[in-house]
Amino acid sequence: MLEIKCPYCGNRSQNEFAYGGDATVKRPELNSMISDQEWDEFVYYRKNPRGNHLELWHHVSGCRQWFKVFRNTATHEIIQTMEMKENP
């Protein structure tokens, strides 16, 4: 069980949170021509690294805010949590 520091509420148990996916994925620019390959990469393909990873989490049973978690997927160490506008 992880203890995650919500940027708004402080340290809370993992079962108050929901994982929201890879935070590094960027949606292709609107109104621009993009290839099927680019769209596939946005929708389906993920790097799934072993090591440091930037993730989205939702404090669904707390303040209901989305935020970013920078953590190590091998050791489960949470290096940093931050608001959506911030970066590690």
């Binding site: 509420c9 049973s61 209901r64």
Partner: peptide, 16 residues
């Protein structure tokens, strides 16, 4: 799972 050991008057929290 909320840690209420340090909970004092006029503290509030959402949890499960």
């Amino acid at each position: 799972p909320l840690n209420v050991n340090n909970f004092v008057k006029n503290n509030c929290a959402n949890s499960v």
